[in-house]
């Protein structure tokens, strides 16, 4: 049965990828991208990679199609016909790369085999010791937030940098941090959608908090929670307009929060430095090592969540400001 589901999902994945290439309309491509995200996340679920599936569901199927769509709303929706002249060289390049990749997969061990390199080096230790050392059931969270906390700090910094880059590129001149003033502008309102969404948004935010603080026990954590929280805010912004959502969470606050999340993460590490221990050694936080790990992981996951949510909301603000500017 598992095999059947895998085969069905993978063939649909391939079909989606091929139709993505064939389709010319950009909105159509975005819808297919969203379907691709849904499919690959289902595939991750069947492979038991629940945390990855979580991220893919929230980012690949949710936020990134929305941002792409807003881009398309800004630039127009038909892809230009490619010029026919230089078809040989790209084709050669793609073929060679594809063949190399396929040859590369021949050397890979079969899925789930015990002597795969990924299961050789440090993985056995993580799997066997994390219960005693960290004391939380979700091994993915203990690897991400404790054993490999330094790497995760790097990822959070990448996200933070991306947010700054978007602000630099897209922020309208002379409008930085100010709330757009087209509050009197009337859009055609859809009462049903607005009312139902108003009921549903609090539950989305609540679920985001559940994912944030339940990440030690089930799938999820700061990244996923941040994305879900931001999606709730984005939904509010889409329905009630940029000015209303800017009154709820002003842009300067979001930008400050993005930096604050990274700071919270890094300061947790610096605390250990002050006590003369290695960076991000949580044992300084409490006398009992397991409690210390728990406190440290909660703190840095909170930092991750705050940063991710703020960066995504910032990106949405930048796009939405451009859209409302373009509509004038």
């Amino acid at each position: 049965m598992e095999l059947l589901v895998d085969i069905a999902l993978l063939s649909m994945l391939v079909a989606t990828a091929v139709s993505l290439i064939l389709v010319r309309g950009l909105v159509a491509s975005i819808m297919l991208t969203s379907i691709y995200g849904l499919l690959s996340a289902s595939f991750f679920v069947t492979m038991d990679a629940v945390d990855v599936a979580f991220t893919e569901a929230a980012v690949g199927a949710g936020v990134s199609p929305l941002l792409l769509l807003m881009t398309v709303a800004l630039v127009g929706r038909v892809e230009q016909q490619p010029r026919k002249r230089h078809i040989a060289f790209p084709l050669l390049l793609v073929t060679v790369t594809g063949v190399l990749l396929i040859v590369g997969t021949l050397d890979m061990p079969p899925f789930g085999s015990a002597d795969a390199p990924a299961l050789q080096h440090v993985a056995p230790r993580y799997l066997q010791q994390s219960g005693e050392e960290i004391g939380i059931p979700n091994v993915v969270t203990s690897v991400l937030a404790s054993y490999r906390a330094y790497d995760t700090l790097g990822e959070v910094l990448v996200i933070f940098t991306a947010g700054i880059a978007v602000i630099l590129v897209l922020m309208l001149p002379g409008r930085r941090g100010s709330v757009p003033d087209d509050a009197g502008r009337q859009r055609p309102r859809n009462v049903v959608v607005n009312v139902v969404s108003k009921i549903l948004i609090p539950f989305m935010l609540l679920f985001a908090l559940y994912v944030q603080f339940h990440g030690e026990y089930g799938p999820g954590g700061g990244f996923q929670a941040g994305v879900i929280f931001a999606s709730g805010i984005i939904l509010y912004g889409l329905l009630y307009g940029l000015p209303s959502v800017c009154r709820v969470i002003p842009p300067p606050v979001v930008e400050a929060l993005a930096a604050l999340g990274v700071l919270l993460y890094a300061l947790t590490g610096v605390l250990a430095l002050l006590d003369g221990r290695p960076f991000l050694d949580y044992s300084v936080l409490a006398t009992d090592p397991v409690t210390a790990q728990y406190l440290g992981i909660t703190a840095i996951e909170l930092g991750v969540g705050v940063t991710v949510a703020s960066v995504i909301i910032t990106i949405f603000y930048a796009f939405a400001a451009h859209l409302s500017e373009a509509q004038r």
């Binding site: 199609p65 709303a73 994912v211 939904l235 329905l239």
Partner: peptide, 28 residues
């Protein structure tokens, strides 16, 4: 049963993306 969390996320995200898509096409 851990998978159910993913299903919840999907239910949320799916609604958001449909409404988002419609709102943006409406803007256009």
């Amino acid at each position: 049963p851990d998978f159910l969390d993913i299903a919840v996320v999907y239910a949320l995200i799916n609604y958001i993306s449909v409404i988002g898509v419609l709102r943006v096409t409406e803007m256009r």
